[in-house]
Write a protein that binds this DNA or RNA. Structure first.
Lengths: 220, 220
DNA sequence: ATCTGAATTGGCCGGCCGGTCAACCTCGAA
DNA sequence: TTCGAGGTTGACCGGCCGGCCAATTCAGAT
C-alpha cells in the first residue's frame, strides 16, 4: 500500500477500543471486519456459492466498500486465503524447525498438526474447497521438502524402516490428519456413535503410524 | 417493442441449423448422454461453479431438455451423484462381503479401494465437493458399520492389536486412500518429482498400515 | 391415414450476479 | 478556515442465472 504520509503512522483515534462504535471509520479496522466475516462465509459456502451480497451483509458493510478495499470478489477470496495460509505456514515452519529430533519429533509433529487443524476449522474448510477445485495454490515446496528431508535423516539413522519412501510417510501423516477434519461430517453420518472422539482418534492414529514406520526388531 | 403476436411472427421451421441424429430421439439415450456430460462438468467445477448452460453445451442439448428430463439443476446433480454413488456402493459391498477374511482380507480391501478410486476420478472429485460443502449425503451406515465389525472380529482373534479402536483403523484406511487422490494436485505442487507414483504410494501405505495395526510379538 | 404423447426446441421472464460511478461524509493537515 | 484524501454510500448497468412455456417434431399405436 502506498501511503503519501508514512511519517505519522499512528492509529487515528487512540481509545477506539469499543467494538461496536458507529464512528469506526478506520480503513484498517473495516478491512479486518470484512476479512473476518468473509472467512466464515467463504469457508462455509465456497467461492462460487457465495455472493458479494452475502459477504457484504455478513460484514455489515455495502458491496461498494468491499470492492473499494479488495478490488473484486476474487481479491477478497485471495486475501482471506492468504491470511489463513500465512498462519498455517508459520505454524508448520515452527513445528519443522524447532521440533525435537528423532521419532519423538515425528510424533510431536502429528499432535501439533492435529491440534492446529482442530483450532482452525475455517482453514480446514477452505483447504477442502481448494482441494475440490484443484486450484493451483501457493506451493510451499520448501517446507514440504524440508519435512521429507527430516524423515530421510531419520531413515538413515535407522529410526524408520528402510522399505518405505519417506515422502509416503509424510503424505500419510498430513493426509490422515487433514482428511479427518474434512470428512468428519460425512463420517458422523456413516458411523454415528461408533465414531471415535477427536482425542481418541488422534491417539490411535499416533499408535498406528509410529509402529507402522518403525523398523522391526533386528531390522536396519 | 415486443410483438404481442406470437402466432406467425417468425417461423424458424426452414433449414434447422444443427442436424440432430435421426435415431437419437430415444429418451433414455439422451438421459444417459446428459448424465455422462454432467458428471464430467460437475466433477470439475462443482455445483455452484457450473451453469445449466455449461451442462447443456457439454451434452449437446438445449437447457429445456435438461429441465424436461431432470426437473432442475439440482435434480441433475442428484442424479449424477446417485449414479456414481451406486457404483461405489456396489464395489464396497462386494469388497466387504466376499473379501477374504483375516489380515489378508484387510490388505486386499486397501488395494481394491485404491484401484477403484484410481479408476473413478469423477467419483473422487464429486466426493471432494460434497466433503467441502459438508452436505448430508446418503448415509450407508450399514456398510461402514459392517467394516467396523469385520475389524472387531479380527481384533478378537488377536490379528489386530488391542489398544486401538477398530473404527480408527477403518477410518484411517479410507481417509488415506481417498485423500491421496483428492489432494494429488496439491501434493504435486508441493513435492514435485519427490511425490511417489500411485503404485509406490499404495505399497508404502499397505506396509505402514498393516504393520501399524498388527500386535507386537508376544502381544495378545 | 390419423391420432397421440413423449421428445425437443427457441424464446422469454424476473431476478440476482459482479462491477462501476458520482457523490457524500469525516477528519487531519495546511 | 480551507482543503483534500481516503472512507463510505446508494443507484445503476449489462449480463448471466435457473426456470417456464407454447410450439414443433416424430415414432409408434390405432
Amino acid at each position: 500500500m502506498t501511503s503519501p504520509h508514512p511519517s505519522n503512522a499512528n492509529p487515528p483515534s487512540t481509545a477506539s477500543s469499543s467494538p461496536r462504535s458507529p464512528e469506526e471509520r478506520s480503513g484498517d479496522a473495516t478491512r479486518e471486519r470484512i476479512l473476518d466475516a468473509a472467512e466464515n462465509v467463504f469457508a462455509k459456502q465456497g467461492f462460487h456459492g457465495t455472493s458479494l451480497r452475502d459477504l457484504a451483509e455478513a460484514a455489515g458493510v455495502t458491496r461498494s466498500l468491499i470492492h473499494h478495499h479488495f478490488g473484486s470478489k476474487e481479491g477478497l477470496w485471495i486475501a482471506v486465503a492468504d491470511r489463513l495460509f500465512e498462519t498455517y505456514r508459520a505454524w508448520q515452519s515452527s513445528i519443522l524447525r524447532e521440533g525435537a529430533f528423532g521419532i519423538e519429533g515425528f510424533e510431536e509433529s502429528i499432535r501439533q498438526f492435529f491440534l492446529f487443524l482442530e483450532s482452525s476449522p475455517n482453514f480446514v474448510r477452505l483447504r477442502a474447497w481448494t482441494n475440490a477445485a484443484q486450484s493451483a495454490e501457493t506451493p510451499h515446496r520448501d517446507l514440504a521438502l524440508l519435512g521429507v528431508d527430516r524423515l530421510r535423516e531419520l531413515q538413515a539413522c535407522g529410526e524408520i524402516r528402510s522399505d518405505i519412501d519417506p515422502a509416503s510417510a509424510l503424505i500419510g501423516l498430513f493426509n490422515l490428519v487433514e482428511h479427518w477434519f474434512q470428512a468428519r461430517t460425512t463420517l458422523e453420518n456413516r458411523l454415528g456413535e461408533t465414531l471415535p472422539g477427536n482425542h481418541e482418534f488422534l491417539e490411535d492414529l499416533v499408535r498406528i503410524l509410529i509402529r507402522g514406520i518403525r523398523p522391526c526388531d533386528g531390522e536396519t
